[in-house]
């Protein structure tokens, strides 16, 4: 005779990813490495922004980057121009980075010596939301050409981010972008989140971003965050 029974399990589907992410986060904290991940749609200007960030931080801090890309190493090549060490993670058909990819990419690298490690996720505002990478801050970027309501269309990723960065602010006039409406949209889905407006091209807002990073790094070193 066939009998059926129900067993309660309550098991996280992404438990394995979460476990690896937790181990990474602890290792980063012990080594004093501040890890910042960047997420955005394709074309929001992540790579240009990161290149500028690496270039400006390099004189004062040990920095490096991991960059996820579906098929090419174009982004890694562009980032190498900053002079900072860069490693490419080719994800193939996978639309997001996972914690194990970060762990594997760090093998054989003296990442413990770093002050900052940046992780550029695959251009996508949906899939990366589910995967913890062990980062200490998640920055979500959107450009003025994407429209003010981007946060309302992708509330999940905006709600899980720590800082929002509006890129290509030099195009604010041409794009007829409403800065106030954009800030309100961010705060509708994540009240109080820090918002920075930057242009990697003109340098506008980059100083505030660097201050934000260094301040976060120092507070972490003092054990306040």
């Amino acid at each position: 005779m066939v009998t059926t029974r129900i067993v309660e399990v309550r098991r996280q589907v992404l438990k394995q990813n979460d476990t690896v992410a937790r181990e990474l986060r602890q290792a980063f904290a012990e080594a004093g490495v501040t890890v910042i991940s960047l997420v955005s749609s394709p074309g929001a200007g992540k790579t240009r922004f990161l290149e500028e960030t690496l270039t400006r931080l390099r004189p004062s801090h040990a920095v490096a980057a991991l960059v996820g890309d579906l098929a090419t190493d174009h982004d890694a090549q562009r980032l190498s121009r900053s002079g900072a060490p860069v490693r490419q993670i080719v994800t193939g058909t996978v639309c997001h980075l996972e914690a194990a990819m970060i762990r594997d990419a760090l093998r054989g690298w003296d990442w413990q010596e770093l002050d900052f490690l940046f992780i550029e996720n695959v251009g996508n505002l949906v899939c990366p939301a589910s995967f913890d990478l062990g980062e200490s801050q998640r920055a979500v970027l959107f450009s003025v050409t994407e429209g003010e309501d981007k946060p309302l269309k992708y509330p999940t990723i905006f709600n899980t981010a720590d800082v929002a960065i509006i890129t290509k602010i030099d195009l604010v006039g041409a794009a007829e972008f409403d800065r106030l409406a954009a800030r309100q949209a961010v705060h509708r889905v994540r009240p109080g989140m820090t918002i920075l407006e930057i242009s990697a091209k003109t340098g506008e807002g980059m100083e505030q971003w660097l201050e934000y990073l260094v301040d976060h790094h120092e507070r972490r070193a003092e054990g306040k965050t």
Partner: peptide, 11 residues
């Protein structure tokens, strides 16, 4: 939430 709540097993 993204979790397995329960399994139904047949014996």
């Amino acid at each position: 939430e993204l979790e397995i709540a329960a399994l139904e097993l047949e014996t």
